[in-house]
Design a protein around this nucleic acid. Structure first.
Lengths: 144, 144
DNA sequence: ATAATACCTATAGTAACTATAGGTATTATC
DNA sequence: GATAATACCTATAGTTACTATAGGTATTAT
């Protein structure tokens, strides 16, 4: 296999996902249809590997396929004006920052549980009380 | 409706999700079966509202139903020893911290795009290069 | 040369919702 | 107090984002 051109299995291993997932992302138009070997097998580049890793991480963080499409559009659409990219990026940034706030709360509560726990059983677990009893506006529009 | 006892619609509104989702979480054993009105309608408490909000936020952050079940088990299982809660919390904490790292990278790249963009079109978008070209071990076991 | 492995397409199955149908409760208005 | 609007009920079908399987071809290792 020529350097810089890998088969689908190698690509999937790099990104930490299944081969089937890669083919699914091609069908879903998140991944571009790649070059094919003379016999018809898919051949990928390093750029494809970066793109797939990005998609997997975004999915793991709870972004929907549609949201990932929106993020990738900022990469793909070289035609877009800076102003529109700016606006899209800003809306994605707010989305990301909300998630960061939730995760930081989660981190601190888990940290507390680990340090405060001093043996025996847990009589009155504070996790639900501490976590997310505030900001009820979780109707945040997906910033696609 | 007696204070502190709300119908499913009010509960769903508080947590920012659909009524159907609440019923689905009951089926999936994430929410406890609630009290019923004389005619058979579900009646929820403030505690249920906190629990549902927690589930929704965890799901938005990419935790699977199984993972959420694991987190909730720390709340529900009053029998568990502090040591086992500690171990579970630690494994969840590592999971959360990995997500935090990914999200922080995403935040900084989006921030850069917003501040660096100075008009015209974007000739060479750095987003894929900057994002996630590193740490390829995304095979992190779900820490249930 | 041939066996093991990796790839191909097409299709079916799963997880986590989401929507619909057909019917009963609750609440609001006259 | 009748009735209309809204919210609730169960059961079931549909959607999204994968994941697994079947039956067959390519590539690689021995």
């Amino acid at each position: 296999m020529a350097k810089g051109h890998m088969a689908i299995g190698a690509l999937a291993r790099i990104a930490g996902c299944k081969v089937e997932t890669v083919r699914y992302y091609e069908l879903a138009k998140l991944m571009h249809p790649p070059e094919r070997s003379p016999a018809g097998q898919r051949r990928y580049t390093e750029i494809d590997a970066k793109r797939l890793s990005f998609i997997r991480r975004a999915r793991n963080l709870g972004f929907s396929i549609e949201e990932v499409r929106g993020l990738l559009a900022m990469v793909d659409d070289q035609e877009h004006s800076c102003d529109s990219v700016r606006a899209t990026a800003l809306s994605h940034l707010q989305n990301v920052q909300q998630r960061l706030a939730d995760l930081r709360t989660m981190e601190s509560v888990l940290g507390d549980m680990i340090s405060e726990c001093t043996g025996g059983t847990v009589p009155d677990c504070p996790i639900l009380d501490a976590l997310f009893s505030d900001h009820p506006e979780d109707n945040r529009a997906p910033s696609i």
